[in-house]
Design a protein around this nucleic acid. Sequence first.
DNA 1: CGGCTTCTATAAAGATTTTATAAAGACAGG
DNA 2: CCTGTCTTTATAAAATCTTTATAGAAGCCG
Lengths: 228, 228
Amino acid sequence: MNRAEILVIDDEVQIRKLLQITLQSNDYAVKEAATAKEGTIMAANHPPDLIVLDLGLPDENGHEVLKKLREWYTNPVIILSVQNSEEDIIKALDNGANDYLVKPFRTGELLARIRSSLRSTNGEESIPVIKCRDLIIDLSARTVKKNSEFVKLTSTEYNLLSLLARNEGKVLTHHYLLREIWGPGFINQSQYLRVFTAQLRKKLENDPNRPEYIVTEAGVGYRFVARE
Amino acid sequence: MNRAEILVIDDEVQIRKLLQITLQSNDYAVKEAATAKEGTIMAANHPPDLIVLDLGLPDENGHEVLKKLREWYTNPVIILSVQNSEEDIIKALDNGANDYLVKPFRTGELLARIRSSLRSTNGEESIPVIKCRDLIIDLSARTVKKNSEFVKLTSTEYNLLSLLARNEGKVLTHHYLLREIWGPGFINQSQYLRVFTAQLRKKLENDPNRPEYIVTEAGVGYRFVARE
DNA sequence: CGGCTTCTATAAAGATTTTATAAAGACAGG
DNA sequence: CCTGTCTTTATAAAATCTTTATAGAAGCCG
């Protein structure tokens, strides 16, 4: 089951409609933007798992948009463009694009390239299931079990837990957590983190007053601990 | 700084020569194989950082070769093929290829796609860990172990230790330490340093009265010592 | 040597910042 | 118009940092 979120930034309404239908029927959650400005704002407000970016946007140069995105956005970006010149392709790829498709494109190929790109970022972990003591986090199914019972988590709670668990042992700073989950415009909202970690601890920890999984690193951030 | 190793598996000698020259002049180490069999053996004997694989090999179906490679090989694979059919492209990408180029290809584009593919795996290169005697400082996880046990440090304590350890052997002046950790307005607060080094010694040194790690350089500053 | 000064180590009290948590308000989707 | 979720506010508790106090060590000089 996918449910990966894809942001399509393209000014042609036909393309957006086509992608909307194609992607949705392949079980992706789709968001759309018609301009560079709108797209970057949407990406910043809620970072998607992948961005499909048209280079020929009306309000800004596509290469510049890509560069600005790449200053903080780490997930895959696939470029769509009518430009078939080698120069454009190289420029885009070197600016951080993961792939480049020339319009008109074949939807099946685009889907395959999306799968490939998503695979490479998900693949890093290579552990689709994280187990530790009485917790089981299934990253592919997006489910969490405690003592063999499913725990109901909201989307944001799960995102936070998953990010922490995938970086087990590492301290993740407030700054980093906020940027990854809420987007770069939220890096000062440390209170969000406190609220959601408290929520997670209430659901996951044996004694929420003395947390064992999600450890506070005062003044810095939080850390997920798997071992005893 | 490149020196990434690339294995080219292609039966056409002209392509191999072209790639050999192109890749080598871009500072990659190149190995060649003319058949599927030869290629898989070479990859197994010494896994390269990236594989360029021709789908049209004489001795075995390219898709099968890719599938078998992917059972164990996790680095990027870029497909070269004369086949431009959507079916082939989708099949290859879903079998684990990271990219697919149709022959004849543009060498500049291939190079850019190689860079893009390598970029995504290189993500975490250097793992900065400082080890000395019974101390382990993990700079990426922001954790400190003494005798394999985690030591709980406050944010400022860690910052000070990390700064000293990263400059192992050098004397860091009061002035410098204060400016780096507290900021330029604190360069006269030498007392801060005394308080925090005392704190660190209490937590890290075997005998805090005769410190071995954090050595005082009277009138000047402090020095971190790793050796016996 | 002994008095003086400067620098250092350490504990502990006080001040400040950071965190945990509940709960109320806002908002979107069905 | 509910319902579940996210955002915001308020406040107590905990952790950390800053400041003060005191004592020891080291160097200098008559």
